[in-house]
Nucleic acid binder design. Structure first.
Lengths: 199, 199
DNA sequence: TGTAAACTTGACACTGTGTAAATAGGAAAT
DNA sequence: ATTTCCTATTTACACAGTGTCAAGTTTACA
């Protein structure tokens, strides 16, 4: 019973992600159904509502892209600074891949509590990474002395937010490389006691 | 003919703004009508659709809050750095007052072309202010040498974006003062050749 | 052949936006 | 005093999109 069903379920998730990623238009349930090649109602046999489908798609994407593994790499860094940079690279590089689904979920925030929860959950997880990087920085004595770890985490969290990426890359048209470079600089300047300069 | 009409029109705008500002919930046409004390259909006699109403409300807010005058103050600053800081103060202080309507318009971006245009228009105007501040900074030789004026403007524009304010103040719970202080620091670190430090 | 799962079609409820028609009340002109 | 205009009202409907329901069809497989 499960093999066919799982195939369709997976096909739905893949199609949903493709539609969300490639297009800037609105993705309706009927759009997804048509793209998958099933009826709109069949969609509801697999996912009870739009929010659940989007959340499932997010989880699927994480699994496929191995988000945890990527972000875990930053934990291996020895110095606090290296760890900060590794985290910026990891998360900053992940944003473009989840941007489509992320903004679809964000658009549902106001109307759907479940979507809002999924959004928050995701952002909170990201904040954990920021907090860890800030702690490592502080342990090395490199955190700007007038910042608490909490405030520093908030700052890094905001700098690395998907909205910031969207603004710089989508709106201003920056390349991913330019984004990475400037955001790293920005974070360094915001968090580090004695700002880095190329020696 | 006009006095009564203008009164109702103004009352609609004021009510709309109040609803948008004070509540985090969704504001429907019927909500506005009920709050004004007229029928939903009477709303359409004054404003043909929701987007037009929101846009009119934005313009009304600008007029009431005298946005131009505030932002113009920053142009009076003598040094580039003073001008940058004056602009950050002016715009950063204006965001909380227009945040409600701004995010309502932003939520309509995907579905309504006119709302998207109004949003872009507003953000572009803000970018002009950023560009002017960056030019003044560059004229003083204080712009980080590896930044073009365009790139620097993009950076400042992103740092001062309403999304950044929302993240730090609404999400992280910062006070407006903390926001102002850290964002100023952030902008300084991002744009200025030799970063400021308290002597 | 029979059964169950996956899927289909068609219909409908609900919300929110926007349109239309028929009507009422008040002000102002004549 | 009556007509005319303007504002507003009520009722009704069209439309898009989400979500539900019921009855019927295909496919697999035992």
């Amino acid at each position: 019973m499960s093999s066919v069903q799982r195939d369709t379920k997976t096909r739905i998730l893949e199609t949903t992600l493709k539609l969300l990623e490639s297009g800037d238009k609105k993705v309706r349930m009927s759009d997804i159904a048509k793209a998958v090649g099933i009826s709109r109602q069949a969609l509801y046999l697999h996912y009870p509502n739009r929010a659940d489908l989007l959340i499932a798609a997010t989880r699927y994407l994480d699994r496929v892209k191995d988000a945890d593994a990527r972000l875990a790499e930053s934990r291996a860094a020895t110095s606090g600074l290296a760890r900060l940079h590794a985290y910026i690279d990891a998360w900053g590089g992940y944003i473009p891949e989840i941007h489509g689904i992320l903004s679809a979920l964000r658009a549902m925030r106001d109307t759907d509590a479940e979507a809002a929860a999924a959004c928050d959950d995701r952002m909170d997880a990201m904040r954990q990474g920021c907090a860890a990087a800030v702690r490592a920085l502080n342990a090395d004595g490199m955190l700007r002395p007038d910042l608490t770890e909490d405030t520093a985490t908030d700052l890094l969290w905001s700098i690395l937010s998907a909205e910031m990426w969207e603004h710089l890359v989508k709106r201003c048209g920056w390349t991913q490389d330019a984004y990475r470079a400037e955001v790293t600089r920005l974070a360094d300047g915001a968090l580090i006691a004695t700002p880095q300069s190329t020696p």
